[in-house]
Nucleic acid binder design. Structure first.
Lengths: 200, 200
DNA sequence: CGTCGCATTGATATCGCTCAAATCCGGTGG
DNA sequence: CCACCGGATTTGAGCGATATCAATGCGACG
């Protein structure tokens, strides 16, 4: 996926404006005019929306080397907040320039289609995960679909609390579930990774 | 979105092979080699995967005029089953031909990017919906994001039972929730539509 | 050293799931 | 035309899983 955080393609780098953000900043807010597509050069950004009670709903967590708000290319406004979790360097590409590049450069267009397709598949996997009933099932699904290698080892990005939000669980429930699964020998936890263990 | 189910673009029609399916058929199954992208000319198709206990998880419900398995363009195999709900006419476009067309036709590439972007936004909306806690909140979110017009009127496709699956709820819970919301005057139900009513 | 946020565990409440049953409706065949 | 059937719809009762509220430890950071 992102072995060593792929760089911004040169064709785009020329069009982009880079900007630094501190943790807690917003790259953009929901409702703002969507005039740029963004590429996260470094750091961590979380896209979320807020329910009526102010509960944050995490739409997507972007890692270094990923685009975010790509779907806003064909949208008038941003539909979520982009909150900076880790000090970030963001390259912002004007939508109009990107659109033009898509028209002009067939190869780039192919790459862009591939990026969107991947995002779509990942998001669908997440829908599938959230549709599962039990907390343990969701954890298992996460490991099976996002874990690397034969043991399906999954590396946490951020805190367990963040993971809980991504899984649609409270952090308490996730802690308990992880503890129970480890107790039962279903998973193995190390510093910042979780892996499946043979059985069941 | 799909006022009267948009047709298959001519450029693609030439490349596609059309085939009819009866309700209950599978257009493809999970694990099969993904050599085609599909366009639903008519009918209804549901993309789903199955958990260990055989619980169907609905990934996507395709309507007439929509592509499905678009993300498989860059994937070796299908990741879900495509089950025909209503007798369907499906146009299957070889992945290789589609890829070639993307290279050759910049305008089509733009359209394709737009289609993927839309799907991505819709799927993210669904993630957001599934992350909400209460059944009523999910219904409200559905109406707010997918309902048309000022009253956010939403037209059911298929049964209430199907909707329950899409919302990640059991049909019993959804029936009860809808009844309660109507009782409270939050929503208004008609034949096959649900709409929000002003108040709280 | 004090504070803040994450991690962890306990107790309780609540919501949605499960099992169950009755009704309704469209379609089918006699 | 009517009896029958299967699936959708609807409502009931009880249980269990997860949310919620609460308390404590712990490490980072100023």
């Amino acid at each position: 996926m992102s072995a060593a955080s792929p760089p911004l393609p040169k064709a785009l780098a020329a069009l982009a404006q880079q900007q630094s953000f501190a943790a807690g900043d917003r790259v953009f807010r929901a409702g703002a005019a969507a005039r740029h597509v963004h590429f996260l050069v470094q750091g961590q950004v979380r896209l979320s929306r807020f329910g009526r009670q102010g509960e944050a709903v995490v739409i997507h967590a972007a890692l270094a080397g990923e685009y975010f708000a790509e779907a806003s290319l064909h949208s008038e406004r941003y539909h979520c907040d982009a909150e900076v979790l880790q000090p970030a360097l963001v390259a912002s590409i004007p939508s109009s320039a990107l659109r033009e590049l898509l028209q002009r450069d067939a190869e780039f267009a192919m790459d862009w289609v591939a990026i969107l397709s991947r995002q779509l598949r990942e998001t669908r996997a997440r829908v599938e995960r959230l549709s599962l009933k039990g907390a343990a099932e969701r954890v298992r699904h996460l490991l099976l679909t996002e874990g690397k290698g034969p043991a399906h080892r999954f590396t946490l990005r951020g805190s367990v609390k963040d993971l809980a939000a991504e899984l649609g669980l409270t952090h308490e429930t996730l802690y308990r579930t992880l503890a129970a699964m480890e107790q039962q020998g279903v998973i193995e936890r190390r510093a910042t990774t979780i892996a499946l263990r043979g059985g069941r």
